[in-house]
């Protein structure tokens, strides 16, 4: 088995509040293998979004280390972080994941285009990614012409376009109805079965059930009831 796409070692995060240092996360360990789909559940304020932010270099830990595809996330400059985001990791939030002025195809192509790939070469790759989430037909629509579920699927296509293989999702189905949410999860599942990896934060057990593993975060620590569904 190859190296994990994401590894977090004894990661901690504190916030200062009214002169007090409050621990919101950690220390936690987490490993995400390639092709693995892990869901994180837990009550509000348990540190789920903080964990996700640390995993995707949106935030820095005050203790421990995060390795993304074997590279330690530490002391990276702004442009190095940008390159990391272009090439390795995609984010999907509850809403506003797409650039309004770009079509579905252009949104999907965005990381490749930002990385300097010629449009001629990037377009087929992006189109293939869109087709994998069943949106090949809608490639030239603008976000406002797509439904909420379709927008989230475009965001998933973008997260996995070309060589990108890690998706960090924070309640991606939070604004969707059950059926649209399920379609989004189905495509996420398919992508992970195809070798991509995803870390999903959700409070919805039905969506967490699509994952290979469900971790329960309580008060910044993983509860030891990790429902490890073996066999994968």
């Amino acid at each position: 088995m190859s190296a994990p796409i994401l590894r977090m070692e004894a990661v901690e995060r504190h916030y200062e509040s009214a002169g007090q240092r409050i621990r919101v996360l950690g220390p936690v360990d987490l490993e995400l293998a390639r092709g693995e789909f892990v869901a994180i559940m837990g009550p509000s304020g348990a540190g789920k979004s903080t964990l996700l932010g640390l995993a995707g270099a949106l935030d820095r830990p005050d203790g421990g280390a995060v390795f993304l595809d074997g590279q330690k996330l530490w002391g990276l400059r702004g442009d190095e972080l940008a390159a990391l985001r272009r090439r390795k990791v995609g984010y999907v939030f509850q809403d506003l994941n797409l650039v309004e002025g770009l079509t579905a195809l252009e949104n999907t192509r965005l990381p490749l285009e930002l990385d300097g790939l010629a449009r001629r070469k990037a377009d087929p790759v992006a189109l293939a990614a869109l087709e994998r989430v069943g949106l090949g037909e809608l490639a030239h629509r603008f976000p406002e012409e797509l439904s909420g579920g379709e927008r989230q699927r475009v965001a998933i296509a973008r997260a996995f376009v070309g060589p990108r293989e890690l998706l960090l999702a924070d309640e991606p189905t939070g604004a969707l109805d059950s059926l649209a949410g399920e379609t989004v999860m189905r495509h996420l599942r398919t992508a992970c079965d195809g070798g991509k990896s995803a870390l999903l934060v959700t409070h919805d057990a039905r969506h967490a059930a699509w994952a290979d593993r469900v971790l329960h975060l309580v008060d910044g620590r993983f509860a030891h009831d990790n429902a490890s569904v073996g066999g994968r």
Binding site: R85, G90, V99
Partner: peptide
């Protein structure tokens, strides 16, 4: 008005220069 777009661009890996 394009504030949310800017955020997406940052998250998608647009460099500060871009």
């Amino acid at each position: 008005e394009a504030g949310p777009d800017r955020r997406v661009l940052v998250l998608t890996g647009a460099s500060p220069h871009t």
